[in-house]
């Protein structure tokens, strides 16, 4: 775990990108648009951290985009029905925990492949929500947006919560015994078991944490607008997984750092604005993001072969 090379590569790429932006598009660094961009990315950061830990444990969760929408819609409905804001937050978190627990119980308890389990729950949450809500936006009661604060202060709180959570998680994975177990289980299930670690409980816990973070992300998303779109979070799972992989989380499990994930997410986020400022048509954004993901995976593959 001493080898920071992979994370340093991402950081270097990120800095290179920022320098290019500073030279060719100094507008990028204007405070207000930058602040808005970071705030919009805050929920993504939480989901990317969660899915990074899931991948470290050598599992995958593609249901998080749907769970994110479900938790957000649930919380919005609770708030619209007259519940207090803290109660609505609790609803989002409970929905997230429940979704994570279901995935965890099926994957860890029955040892089913996580790709299939979370594919199924992804479809179920999404289609269930579509059936129930018919795509109608849910209006939030006044005073919910930006926690009832001014926009600037609200944005600060949203970013603060996201970064604070990242910091806590990064410290926990490094300094809590439980954090180590995730890496040990992802490295080698049997070796972990022989060291007295329960892979089953560890995996369940990782999915539970993932669900909780999806619920949190939904709250941070909800407070950013006066309405909640039940179709939100489409493709979010792919963005989160991409950030984790670009940030140096090994798809083979057992390796990865959360601050690398942050760098990976920021790198991917820079591409859209960079293209806009460079005058390239924005259709290229996804293609270039795909290219970066491919490059990250190929680099890992080449390193492993050596």
């Amino acid at each position: 775990m001493r080898n920071y090379f992979r994370e340093l590569c991402v950081l270097a790429a990120l800095f290179l990108m920022l320098i290019l932006l500073a030279i060719f598009a100094p507008n990028f660094f204007e405070l207000q648009p930058l602040q808005s961009r970071l705030t919009a990315a805050a929920p993504k950061l939480l989901l990317a951290c969660g899915v990074a830990l899931v991948i470290v444990a050598r599992e995958i969760d593609i249901s998080i985009g749907s769970l994110f929408a479900l938790a957000g819609s649930g919380a919005a409905m609770a708030a619209a029905a007259g519940l207090s804001f803290p109660a609505a937050v609790a609803v989002a978190l409970i929905i997230g925990l429940a979704g994570g627990a279901i995935n965890g119980a099926l994957v860890a308890g029955l040892r089913l492949p996580s790709i299939v389990v979370t594919l199924a729950t992804m479809v179920i949450w999404r289609e269930g929500l579509r059936l129930g809500q018919q795509g109608v936006f849910i209006n939030l009661p006044p005073g919910t947006q930006w926690f009832g604060l001014s926009m600037a202060a609200g944005q600060g709180v949203v970013c603060g919560i996201a970064f604070g959570t990242l910091l806590l998680l990064a410290l926990a994975t490094r300094h809590l015994a439980a954090g180590r177990f995730i890496y040990a289980v992802g490295s080698d299930d049997e070796a972990a078991r022989l060291a007295g670690i329960s892979p089953r409980i560890t995996r369940f816990f990782v999915f539970l944490l993932m669900g909780f973070l999806a619920g949190m992300g939904a709250v941070l998303n909800m407070v950013q607008s006066p309405q909640v779109d039940p179709n939100s979070g489409r493709g979010l799972e792919l963005e989160a997984i991409a950030a984790a992989v670009v940030g140096g989380v090994a798809v083979t499990g057992g390796r990865g750092r959360l601050w690398g994930v942050l760098a990976g997410l920021l790198l991917l986020l820079c591409i859209g604005p960079a293209l806009t400022y460079a005058g390239v048509r924005p259709y290229w954004e996804k293609a270039i993001q795909g290219g970066i993901i491919l490059a990250a995976v190929v680099a890992d593959g080449l390193r492993r072969q050596r």
């Binding site: 775990m1 070796a191 022989l194 007295g196 057992g254």
Partner: peptide
């Protein structure tokens, strides 16, 4: 394969079974 987690440092490997209770 099973005796130690090769990716982890020596110190974490040695302390692993001490705090293995989740």
């Amino acid at each position: 394969r099973h005796g130690l987690v090769l990716e982890m440092p020596v110190a974490s490997n040695i302390s692993m079974a001490v705090h293995s209770s989740f």
